[in-house]
Amino acid sequence: MKSQYFAGVDIGSTMTKVVIMDQTTLTPVIGPTGPEHRKLANRVMEEALAKAKLSFDEITYVVATGYGRINVPFADKQITEISCHARGVGHLLPDARTVIDIGGQDSKGIKLKAGRVVDFVMNDKCAAGTGRFLEVTAEGLGVSLEDMGRLSLEAKNRVEISNTCTVFAAQEVVARLSEGVALPDIIAGLHEAIATRIYGMVRRLKIEREVALTGGGAKNIGLVKALEAKLGFPALLPPEPLLTGAIGAALLGRDIVQEAAEKGETLVRSERRLTEASIFT
């Protein structure tokens, strides 16, 4: 029987993630979103197709998710990132009951039961609980975002960052630097500050073990450790935390196709076009 392929396209605020899956293989591509790339999700998709050695017509179903999901003309369906993260985590880490997703622009808490969402909370109002907080402060410290986690583990005497506003916190860390405070101690303080905000939000859900961490924030070991300290137990991490939403999107696409087949229904698909999105169409 010929393989069926499903694509998940997760357009986040900073990164665009595409996965192509069949029953046994998974081909991922991650590219930056950025202001100019937002309308060019098709390029990331083309890259994934090339990597998987497939043509676009061979993809049975495409699901788009993330902030930019509406702007994907080649998707058959748009599904919220909450549902896609839940499906992705349910597949990758079936023991997880709570998901904490730390994205570039927002953070979310998701409560799962049998791999499906039963409740959620989101912070999309304040950058201080998101990856943006670390981006801004890393820039102020002259440290690359990738190095922040590693450096924070070298902290000897973590400082308290009292400002909860991202802009003012960036000023505060510069002031701390000029006081001669060691860089790792400042970075550890930043991780503590963001972990406190995220944990405070997710606690609304009555956190249940196991807890999975996803999104770009889950790639930062310093933030992971700070959150684990709040939780009081180790968190689960998927192999590639950035891909959970895209994997979930592909899996939900597969679910849709399978459900239609089981019911003997004709699959409704969009008139999809592998072109860039335009605000004029």
Partner: peptide, 20 residues
């Protein structure tokens, strides 16, 4: 946009809970 994204996610949740 953010408000409606939240509403969409809430509707997904309602659907998931109803389906159980």
């Amino acid at each position: 946009a953010d408000t409606r994204a939240r509403i969409d996610a809430f509707i997904d949740t309602l659907e998931a809970v109803k389906d159980r």
